[in-house]
Amino acid sequence: MIEFAQKQKGPLAVDVNEQNPQACRFYEAQGFVTYDRSELDSSGRPFPLLHMRQPGAP
């Protein structure tokens, strides 16, 4: 699925719940790196997010 999205959009960026280490490891294995962190999710709830992207993503 990631390869399909890359072909359509180019390098990708995702937000991953920091409390989900399996998801973090999955995206790291796909070449994503953490470039920022937020204490709150997009709804303002206290669920820290890691902002990850592939090299070349905006």
Score class of each variant (00 low, 15 high):
G56W: 11
D15T: 11
P55H: 10
V33A: 13
L40R: 13
Q54K: 05
G31E: 12
L50K: 13
A5I: 07
P55M: 07
A29F: 01
H51C: 04
L49N: 01
G44Q: 07
Q30V: 03
Q30E: 15
R53G: 13
L49K: 03
G56K: 10
L50H: 11
F32S: 03
D36Y: 01
Q8H: 05
R53M: 14
A29Q: 12
F26E: 08
R25I: 02
A13F: 09
P46I: 01
V14Y: 02
E18G: 10
R53D: 04
P11Q: 11
R53L: 09
Q19L: 08
P58G: 08
P55L: 08
L50M: 12
E3D: 15
N17M: 07
T34M: 11
P58T: 11
S43D: 14
K9L: 15
D41I: 04
S42V: 00
F47Q: 05
D36R: 02
P58K: 14
E18T: 03
C24S: 07
Q22M: 07
A5G: 01
F4R: 14
P46A: 08
Q19I: 00
D41W: 04
V14N: 04
G31F: 13
I2E: 09
E39P: 00
T34F: 00
P46R: 07
Y35D: 04
P46W: 04
L40V: 11
I2D: 07
N17E: 12
S42Y: 04
A5E: 15
L49V: 02
Q30Y: 11
V33Y: 09
R25E: 14
V33S: 13
P21W: 10
L50A: 04
A5W: 13
Y35V: 14
P21A: 06
Y35H: 13
V33P: 00
M1Q: 09
S38V: 01
A23S: 15
R25A: 15
G56H: 09
K7M: 05
S43W: 03
E3I: 02
P21V: 10
E39L: 06
A29D: 11
D15W: 09
L49C: 03
Q54E: 08
D41E: 10
S38C: 05
L50V: 01
Q19T: 02
Q22W: 07
V16Y: 01
C24I: 15
D36P: 00
F4K: 09
S42H: 03
E3W: 03
E28F: 04
S38I: 00
D41P: 07
S42L: 02
M52L: 06
P21Y: 12
Y27M: 08
F26K: 10
C24E: 14
V33C: 05
T34W: 00
K7N: 14
S43L: 10
M52N: 03
